[in-house]
Amino acid sequence: MDAIKTVNLSKSYNNTLVLKQLNLNVKKGEVYGFIGKNGAGKTTTINLILSLILKDSGQVFINEEEIKFSDLAFKKLIGYVPDVPVFPSYMCAKDYLRFTLDIFDLGDSMVNQKTEEILEFVSLPNSTKKISSYSRGMKQRLAIAQALIHDPEIIIMDEPTSALDPIGRNDVMNIIYKLRGSKTIFYSTHILDDVERVCDRIGLLDDGNLIVQDTVDNIQKNFFSNKFYIETKNEPKFVLKKIAKINQVQNAVKENHGIVCYLEENTDENTLLKKLMEMDENIVEFRRVKTSLEDVFIRLTNEKTT
């Protein structure tokens, strides 16, 4: 079952199409990483899913039910963490969480217990300090707390770590990691290390187009997995010259004591090995290098623009 689905979703600003017939689906219970460069259309997609902006065309489904701009019921199923959360400056964390519970009709006798539990979960001190005095990281943790307090099925996060320092980022990632498996998480970012760490599937958005959508493993396997590390007894700089001349090698660079090269898509490693033997190279190490998501991202987005 799809928790979130968009069908041919389009949006334009000032006659510029920023989201082009987007078709994505987020399965129930998975952590979906929505990645793309700045300006790719990630926030626009999230705003459309949440009915914060009006779409030009297309449909949005939450739990298989189509939503309209004025619908409210689906919002009970969602917890939203914006990229830059802004709270009423006169409130403290507890006030805001109480307000959220009230809005979701959950303002019962358990309010205090619920707010204390959630503040503990996101490691925020339960103080009466006004939110206006919070650091960026604390505000982000409060944003996560208010998104979780009504126990929603779906959490939508818009670049929750983009402006945080490494410690704040790690804290937020740990929270997402703790939620894995219990919630559907739709998480937009351009920090690919985070995606590799927590996401089950990813969607890569580039210039308003979803150019790939699959599991992290499949993407690494299917896209650009022909990356090899070769070390011979010969000096790397000489080996590099030889390897660069092989027709099936797309790109080769010196790395540590060996060479990292990319083979053409339909070429297998045996061809490369055979060529190296023919060159009388004594191979010390020959292995396939696991492609990072960053490689995939850079190559896919570059491929499209070149």
Partner: peptide, 15 residues
Amino acid sequence: TKGLYPLILSKPINR
């Protein structure tokens, strides 16, 4: 003006 709308309007609040 203070940018509170994203969090407010993402909740089931009747406008």
